[in-house]
Write a protein that binds this DNA or RNA. Structure first.
Length: 229
DNA sequence: GTCCAGGGCCGTT
DNA sequence: AACGGCCATGGA
């Protein structure tokens, strides 16, 4: 199966999903940039369920620390406490502080300036920060920066192996394979929306059916999936 | 009690 | 390059 076939099938099944959840009201009321919430969420959700991330985000909002300027000043112990529910809270505290300081030093807290850079340059820059790997960087580029980048996560790798989709299983190979196939069918302007939707659909499907322990009998893709046969 | 989640780093092979 | 151990919580 080709990536575009998977995309179309998932879209027909699940319709359009609104992703990445952001509390716009909070940012309007506080004059902060909603894109920092996406950056924060991308770090907090590393190998962690979103429900746990929500608890941490809630704490950050209650203390008005969900922006790069205010996050920098939070005591390490205090930040540990606030993001505790999201797990790996010590390393994630370091990662959040690191990106916040980077946004201060390089861009004077102006995320527009950050995202105005060429995609590849920005990607390399994000990857140079310890704690930001390929998936976190690409999530930030796509969902906060509206850049045409396909995000590969464990769910994507799992689907590729099971259906299967004919590609090597390294991050780079999967990403290239998906992007080259999707690029052919959509205008450059539409690509970010397509990639956002595609990744959201993959997560939705894998959460519900293509779990670690697959629910093949209920899965609508079972007849075309090697896993079921 | 066990398993798993919208990863990434670091050390070893 | 590829793999294993580690980081940690809360819900199923």
């Amino acid at each position: 199966m080709k990536p575009r076939d998977l995309y179309n099938k998932l879209k027909d099944e699940y319709g359009s999903l609104q992703w990445w959840p952001v509390d716009k009201t909070y940012h309007e009321e506080n004059g902060t940039d909603p894109r920092f919430e996406i950056i924060t969420g991308a770090i907090l959700t590393q190998n962690t369920s979103w429900s746990n991330v929500e608890k941490a985000l809630k704490n950050l909002k209650e203390e008005k620390k969900l922006d790069s300027k205010n996050m920098i000043d939070v005591e390490t112990e205090k930040l540990h406490q606030m993001i505790h529910p999201s797990g790996f809270y010590k390393q994630k505290t370091k990662r959040l502080k690191k990106i916040a300081i980077h946004i201060q030093n390089g861009y004077n807290h102006d995320l527009q300036k950050l995202f105005n850079q060429p995609t590849q340059k920005l990607r390399d820059e994000l990857l140079s920060l310890k704690g930001i790997g390929p998936e976190t960087a690409d999530s930030i580029l796509l969902y906060a920066g509206e850049k045409p980048v396909f995000v590969v996560d464990n769910y994507t790798k799992r689907l590729c192996q099971r259906i299967p989709i004919e590609t090597k299983c390294s991050y780079q190979e999967i990403q290239k394979y998906f992007e080259e196939d999707i690029e052919k069918n959509y205008s450059t302007k539409k690509l970010p929306e397509v990639y956002k939707e595609f990744h959201a659909l993959i997560v939705e499907h894998a959460k519900n059916y293509c779990k670690t322990k697959p629910q093949c009998k209920q899965c609508f893709l079972r007849e075309e999936c090697q896993m079921f046969k």
